[in-house]
Design a protein around this nucleic acid. Structure first.
Length: 674
RNA sequence: GGCGAGAUAGCUCAGUUGGUUAGAGCGCAUGAUUCAUAAUCAUGAGGUCGCGAGUUCAAGUCUCGCUCUCGCUACCA
């Protein structure tokens, strides 16, 4: 493995429209922090940069909804996020933000450099423009009638009623959400990064030169490259963001994914005047820590940008984690299904390390993992308290009890003693190997092995018995046990920084470097203090409290999930709809689809074919004979080449499951619903 | 449906280039121990490595097909 002179480590920029939760921590920030702390302990020259990603359309929408400015939104979440990271000991050298002046200049300059080199292609297309507000409209700012379901409040990118993805020009009667006026189509020019042009380079760089990347990362990159890369737009018509630094680009900003990764560079600039060393010197190793949703940006797009510019380093590795679930359910900000970092600290004061430990031990390195409170309790009680905390405590207590807290001078060490001490070095080497290959849960396991080794050593040597007969021997034993404890203080620092500090404190020791591991860190005669408990048990009731909290969230979601009433319609509007009771005669899956069933339905009027997206919830054989409500006078529509003549009425419950709307008692086909 | 990732002990997961009797932690059982936050230590039970073929002297590991889970994507009136 090449030995680099210095390291630059980045962690994905969190998007500043909400606080951060355990998923963020487990996926990106804890592993990055462990890695960086380890490098620092080894005396490496390392910079660890991150910051808030503060541009993009969702922030402007949130601002509009809350009646505040986008700057207010990002100010609020930037400070919440920044504090959460500090509280958990995520040791950034700088936590920056993309709304800063430095970033605007850097991103702007980066664009200009590529522009001047002719690295972009320009394309002109027609987009909606609000004449009153004098600006182009983002897809989300256009509302109109959905061409598919007729819902009159569909957005330009998606109809919330039927879920269809749309493009703004498909909407009927489009209206601007800014002024309410009808927008006009107007030509607008945008700049594209021709990823296709970089394809040969990416192919070699990733597929040949970086086969060591994690399977999920390598696989996803390969899939993208194999499918052929397309030019990607790097500008948007929006007024929140970084203006495109070209004369003819008034009212345009850099697309958020273009500006966000440049945030790593801006952060480094504000951190050190030597920033170029960290970005451009070939002796610097660049590593991006991200979640799996960010793989394409960090492995394909950002490297293409850097390559196009020409003077920057490319990442040596991009260790992306999978996702963390919570109690068997996807973590979701909008559904409030998460453990928020600031709330955790309210309930578990000063227990940052417990969470860091549990998240590391169960880190989603190779596949999605599940966080459960029960597991949290078990790991705390059976591993942190029983193995680590207990070993340190018994060693320090014994030393205080037998030798008044003075590190005893050992006699001649037995083979067992030496064996045990040399084991520390083996553990150190294993741990280093894991760290350097980004296997942090494995590294954590090795660290815990050291505490286990200590417990075993004490059980085997039994100093509490020997003290009655052979005090000299006990001196050697506690000397060895104390060295293990001191080694634990050093080794725990990357994983459990708060705990590490506690151990150092009562050992009355100054922080030492990684390379001290395996040596005798505590000198004989050195006086240690009384121990403090490193961890305390988590009781059942604390866990129940958390589970209740989640249960409440579930209930609250069900309550709030009820859609508000739609616009009032007249009786005439209603009578236009012809809804009948029908019976399903035949049902079969539409080939090559996941959700579609082709149904033959006896409507009383006739027998007709209806295509319906219910295949995920019903097996075709089991719904034959089922009575349903069917809208019979809906205009026919072709779906997957089959003409669908009507629409089955379904109710969606709070779990998202579909149920038939059918009469309570068996009714004759063709009966009208009114 | 397309693409990617995953499926190994009751639970959570390792298993790097195919190589002896498939490992760890937790849980469980039995025993030892009492310095320690009733914490520790030892031993043991427990696996058709998702299913089915194939390549090989040898397959958890490679190839093909299938099933299920997760993510992206398409389909949903």
């Amino acid at each position: 493995m090449k030995d680099f002179k210095r390291h630059l480590v980045t962690a994905a920029l969190p998007y500043a429209n909400g606080p951060v939760h355990i998923g963020h921590l487990a996926g990106v920030y804890v592993p990055a922090d462990i890695y960086v702390r380890y490098l620092r302990l080894k005396g490496k020259d390392v910079k660890f940069v991150c910051g808030s990603d503060e541009h993009g359309v969702p922030i402007t929408i949130k601002a509009r909804n809350e009646g505040i400015t986008p700057q207010d939104v990002v100010d609020k979440y930037h400070s919440i996020i920044k504090k959460a990271f500090e509280d958990f000991g995520i040791s950034f050298d700088i936590y920056h933000r993309t709304s800063s002046k430095t970033h605007h200049e850097t991103a702007s300059g980066f664009f200009k450099a590529l522009y001047d080199k002719g690295e972009f292609i320009e394309k002109t297309s027609e987009q909606y423009f609000d004449v009153e507000a004098n600006q182009f409209l983002a897809d989300r700012y256009i509302m109109g009638t959905c061409p598919k379901c007729g819902f009159d409040k569909a957005y330009g990118d998606q109809c919330e009623s039927c879920g269809t993805s749309l493009s703004p020009t498909e909407l009927k009667e489009p209206k601007s959400m800014l002024s309410g006026s009808s927008p006009i189509l107007k030509e607008t020019k945008h700049w594209y990064l021709p990823l296709d042009k970089h394809e040969p380079f990416l192919k070699k760089w990733i597929l040949e030169d970086h086969k060591e990347w994690k399977a999920n990362v390598y696989g996803q990159c390969k899939s993208w490259i194999d499918q052929g890369l397309q030019p990607r737009a790097v500008s948007r018509d929006l007024n929140w963001g970084i203006p495109v630094p070209v004369e003819e680009a008034e009212g345009k900003v850099l697309y958020v994914w273009f500006d966000a990764p440049i945030g790593y560079i801006s952060a480094t600039k504000d951190l050190t005047p030597d920033w170029e060393l960290y970005w451009k010197d070939k002796e610097t190793k660049l590593v991006h820590f991200i979640g799996k949703d960010n793989i394409v940006f960090h492995c394909i797009i950002f490297p293409s940008m850097l390559k196009a510019e020409g003077s920057y380093n490319l990442p040596e590795n991009v260790p992306a984690n999978e996702f963390l679930n919570l109690e068997n359910d996807k973590i979701s900000t909008s559904r409030n299904w998460a453990v928020w970092l600031h709330e955790y600290l309210e309930d578990f004061k000063d227990k940052q390390d417990v969470l860091r430990y549990v998240l590391t031990a169960n880190m989603p390195e190779a596949k999605d993992n599940d966080f459960t409170w029960k597991d949290f309790q078990t790991r705390n009680n059976n591993e942190l308290v029983a193995v680590l905390g207990n070993f340190v405590n018994r060693t320090v207590v014994l030393t205080n009890k037998y030798f008044d807290g003075e590190v005893p001078s050992p006699g001649e060490l037995t083979e067992e003693d030496q064996q045990t001490l040399s084991e520390i070095i083996t553990i150190k080497q294993n741990l280093e190997k894991s760290m350097e290959t980004y296997r942090f849960r494995e590294a954590l396991k090795y660290f815990m092995d050291l505490a286990r080794l200590g417990n075993k050593y004490l059980a085997d040597t039994e100093p509490w018995k020997l003290i009655k007969t052979d005090e000299e021997r006990v001196k050697s034993i506690l000397y060895v046990a104390l060295q293990i404890t001191a080694n634990l203080a050093v080794m725990s620092e990357p994983f459990l920084p708060f705990t590490s500090k506690k151990i150092y404190d009562f050992l009355n020791l100054e922080k030492v470097s990684w390379e001290t591991i395996g040596t005798n860190i505590l000198n004989e005669g050195h006086v240690i203090k009384k121990p403090v408990l490193l961890f305390e048990k988590v009781e059942d009731q604390e866990i129940e409290l958390q589970l209740e909290k989640l249960e409440k969230t579930k209930l609250a979601n069900q309550a709030t999930n009820v859609e508000p009433q739609k616009e009032v319609i007249t009786f005439d509007d209603f009578t236009k709809m012809d809804i009948r009771i029908g019976t399903i005669l035949e049902a079969e899956k539409v080939p090559k689809t996941k959700k579609l069933l082709k149904l033959k339905i006896n409507t009383g009027i006739d027998v007709r074919t209806v295509v319906s997206g219910i295949a995920e919830y019903f097996e075709p054989e089991k719904i034959i004979g089922q009575q349903v409500s069917i809208l019979v006078n809906l205009a026919p529509r072709k779906i997957k080449g089959i003409e669908s003549q009507g629409m089955i009425l379904m109710a969606e419950n709070s779990d998202g499951k579909l149920v038939f709307v059918s009469p309570g008692d068996k009714t004759n086909e063709g009966a009208m619903v009114s």
